[in-house]
C-alpha cells in the first residue's frame, strides 16, 4: 500500500501530467483548428493510452483526478458571471431561452427514453443515459438517484457534449440555423458546459445564452427525470 505522502505525490503527478497533455493538445487544436482535435478528447485519449501502457488503474489516476473533478462544482457556480454580465440579454431573450430549453429537456428525456427502449436497452442502462444532456455533476447525481451507473453516465455526458461541439456547427449550417440566440440555446441545451465553452468561442453573447439554457435544462431535468423513471 502507498503511504499518505506517496499518494499525495502521485496525485500531484497525475494533475501535472493531465495539465501538460491538455496544454499540448490545446496547442495542436489551435494550430490545426479542426473540431476533430477537440482538446478534451485528444488529451483524454492520450492519457488513457499512457495509463493502459503502464498498467495504471483508473482509480490510481483518480487520486489526482478527483482534485480536478472537485473544481467542477465551483465552475458551475462561476457561470453566474456570464449570466450577470449579460443580464440585459435575459430581459430580452428570457422567453426564447426558457422555451428552447424546455423543448430541449423534454426531447432529451422523453425522446431519449423512447430511443433507448427501441434500441433494446435495459432499465438500468436507460436510467444511465437519460440525464446525459445536463452538466456532469447534476447528471451523475440524477443517475445515482434513479438507479443508473453514475460513472458511465459521466461518459455519456461527455459524449453528448462532444457530439454537439463536433456535429453542431455542421447541423446548424445545413439547416441554415445561424441565429445567435438559437445557436446559444441549442449548444447549452444539448451539450451543457462543453457546448457552452464552444458557444463562448463564438462570442460572449452566445456563450451567456448557452449557459442560461444549460442551467435551465439542468434544473428542469432534475425536476422531471425522477418523475419519469
Amino acid at each position: 500500500m502507498m503511504s499518505g505522502w506517496e499518494q499525495w505525490a502521485a496525485g500531484c503527478g497525475f494533475v501535472v501530467m493531465s495539465a501538460g497533455v491538455y496544454v499540448l493538445m490545446k496547442e495542436l487544436y489551435r494550430r490545426y483548428s479542426t473540431p476533430l482535435l477537440l482538446p478534451v478528447v485528444t488529451a483524454g485519449v492520450v492519457i488513457m493510452m499512457v495509463l493502459s501502457v503502464f498498467h495504471i488503474p483508473y482509480e490510481t489516476y483518480m487520486q489526482g483526478g478527483q482534485w480536478i473533478n472537485q473544481m467542477l462544482g465551483p465552475a458551475v457556480v462561476a457561470l453566474a458571471y456570464p449570466l450577470y454580465r449579460q443580464r440585459h440579454l435575459l430581459r430580452r431573450y428570457g422567453a426564447a431561452v426558457l422555451g428552447g430549453a424546455c423543448a430541449g429537456s423534454l426531447t432529451a428525456l422523453v425522446g431519449g427514453m423512447a430511443m433507448a427502449e427501441a434500441a433494446g436497452a435495459d432499465t438500468k442502462l436507460i436510467h444511465t443515459i437519460l440525464p446525459k444532456s445536463v452538466t456532469t455533476p447534476v447528471a451523475m447525481d440524477l443517475s445515482q438517484q434513479t438507479g443508473g451507473i453514475p460513472s458511465l453516465t459521466a461518459a455519456f455526458v461527455i459524449l453528448a457534449g462532444v457530439t454537439g461541439v463536433l456535429a453542431g456547427p455542421y447541423v446548424f449550417q445545413c439547416l441554415r440555423m445561424q441565429h445567435e440566440v438559437g445557436r446559444g440555446v441549442g449548444f447549452g441545451s444539448a451539450s451543457h458546459a462543453i457546448g457552452t465553452s464552444k458557444a463562448l468561442e463564438n462570442g460572449e453573447k452566445e456563450g451567456a445564452l448557452s449557459s442560461v439554457a444549460m442551467t435551465v435544462c439542468a434544473v428542469l431535468t432534475a425536476l422531471i427525470c425522477p418523475l419519469l423513471v
Partner: peptide
Amino acid sequence: LAGVVFVNTLLVMVVSAWVGTRIARRK
C-alpha cells in the same frame, strides 16, 4: 447506446435551437 446518445443530442440541439429562434424572432 452511444448511437442513441449521438442522434438524440443532435435532435435536442435542433429542437431547442428552433424553438429559441422562433421566440427570439417574434420578439
